[in-house]
Amino acid sequence: MLIQTRELWKTYTMGTEKVHALRGVTIDITKGEYVAIMGPSGSGKSTLMNMIGCLDTPSSGSYTLNDRSVANMNDDELAMIRNREIGFVFQTFNLLPRATALHNVELPLIYNGTPSETRLDMAKRALEMVDLGDRMGHRPNQLSGGQRQRVAVARALVNNPSLILADEPTGNLDSKTGVEIMGLFDRLHKAGNTIILVTHEHDVAKYADRILHIHDGQVSRDEDVRNAA
């Protein structure tokens, strides 16, 4: 099992009030799955995603990723897990504005000490995989939205992570470009990558094999849609 969560709770304290963003989420995801997390705004999708992505730790409950318990790791241990096991794709791309596409993609490799020649090779290959072999020297502001998101996907891929996490990856793109990006995820999935995608659009969710519906911080339905589309 790649991902195992048991009774995950996340509680934020706002002054005297307690906000439960997650209320006991228990899910299992195996290697190679393509899962969409769907739900209305404020239902806890991003919170769950951050938890799975080791950006955040739960208030209670357990989480094992690749058979390693993550819930009690410290900052630097989590950083290492994020670096090796997880590739993030964000709604707002989150590229370094002053760095070239190549450098942006190279960045995760810098933080795990990959030697520089290997690093450049790997970054170039990742950019070629998203069809940006001819845009390596461009900065984000010299690229279109779709191209930026493809750079972000290349960055997520470059380390061969166990898991690719995308939080509303098409949210800032027009529908045509969105379809392009979803096509890219399809390809990655077919190549054997595990993908978890957050969205509130049904059109986007249908690319996945499985949809986890979230309401009020709880999984309300676990839907198998492999043969639906």
Binding site: R82, L96, L107, N112
Partner: peptide
């Protein structure tokens, strides 16, 4: 701040 967030998300440790 945002740049730091990005770097941390992709695996930068405190020392980095």
């Amino acid at each position: 701040t945002r740049e730091v967030g990005i770097r941390k998300a992709i695996g930068a440790r405190r020392m980095n």
